[in-house]
Amino acid sequence: MSKKLVIHSAWCKGCGICAAFCPKNALEIVKSKVHLKDDALCIKCGLCELRCPDYAIYVEKEEE
């Protein structure tokens, strides 16, 4: 099973909680929306998903 980080940009309010508490510093806020800097940095831990107040970012498990 592989995991993928998904950003649902329409719901992002740019508060920056996900980026601030990302253990790998893989996220950034550009023009009030979250962006993944580089997929290689992301370890798909899902802490951003737990703390996103707007449900705009999450880790999806993909069945192979």
Binding site: K13, C15, G16, R51, P53, D54, Y55
Partner: peptide
């Protein structure tokens, strides 16, 4: 009904989840 009306950074969204 989403996104909700709570302000950016409001903890209520996290608690509702």
């Amino acid at each position: 009904r989403l996104p909700h009306i709570w302000c950016p950074g409001c903890g209520h969204g996290i608690l509702m989840r």
